[in-house]
């Protein structure tokens, strides 16, 4: 019959209309500032710098190798390498960035900086409410704004951070083991060498 489909459609929309007042489950909209959906773990937007320990200046993992600066497709990273070296968390002497700026108005969240970083020093953040009245200065993040603790990283990306921590610990253990081996070797080798010397001296 002519108009049958129209009537069917009209009843469907009427059911939606009335149902949305009765049944709250129908409304899928999340009223954003008041309610928030739990964040998906893989969420990412802009990069940040990870530091270990409690002091961000001392614990920064970044050694200013500038790979991320070179790889960044839109060139939003600016790094100035230090002249001197400072000990990092493990106590090894390393270069460190005197300046580390990311212009997030240019950043396209591609995560390439994270992929290329050999020191797991740069990771992706999840903070997105970053609107600012100052469109140039406000969106240019300095080193102190970028630095976030490893605990924070563990909080926002638990799985990934655990993997990174494990890998780092493994590496450190390996380094330590090697160092210990070297030390042991060092400790062991002088003895036979020293003996003849001692013998010589004897």
């Amino acid at each position: 019959m002519l108009g049958e489909g129209i009537l069917k459609g009209l009843t469907e929309t009427a059911r939606n209309f009335l149902g949305s007042y009765v049944n709250k489950d129908r409304l899928t909209t999340v009223q954003f500032p008041e309610e928030r959906l739990p964040q998906i773990e893989a969420t990412r937007d802009f990069p940040f710098l990870v530091y270990d320990g409690s002091d961000w200046q001392a614990g920064l993992r970044c050694v200013s190798c500038q790979i991320c600066e070179k790889e960044c497709p839109p060139k939003c990273i600016y790094i100035e390498k230090s002249k001197d070296k400072k000990p990092d968390v493990t106590g090894k002497l390393q270069f460190y960035p005197t300046t580390f700026d990311i212009d997030i108005s240019v950043c396209m969240s591609c995560q390439i900086c994270v992929e290329v970083c050999p020191f797991d020093a740069i990771k992706m953040n999840v903070e997105f409410e970053m609107s600012s009245e100052d469109r140039f200065g406000g969106l240019l993040l300095r080193k102190e704004q970028l630095a976030k603790s490893n605990e924070y990283y563990n909080k926002i990306h638990p799985t990934e951070a655990a993997a990174v921590d494990a890998a780092l610990a493994e590496e450190r253990a390996k380094v330590e083991a090697k160092a210990r081996q070297a030390a042991e070797a060092k400790a062991a080798t002088p003895a036979p060498v020293a003996a003849p010397v001692a013998g010589e001296t004897k």
Partner: peptide, 10 residues
């Protein structure tokens, strides 16, 4: 508002 409700929106 009416259209929204018909599409299960606010």
């Amino acid at each position: 508002k009416g259209l929204g409700r018909m599409q299960n929106r606010y």
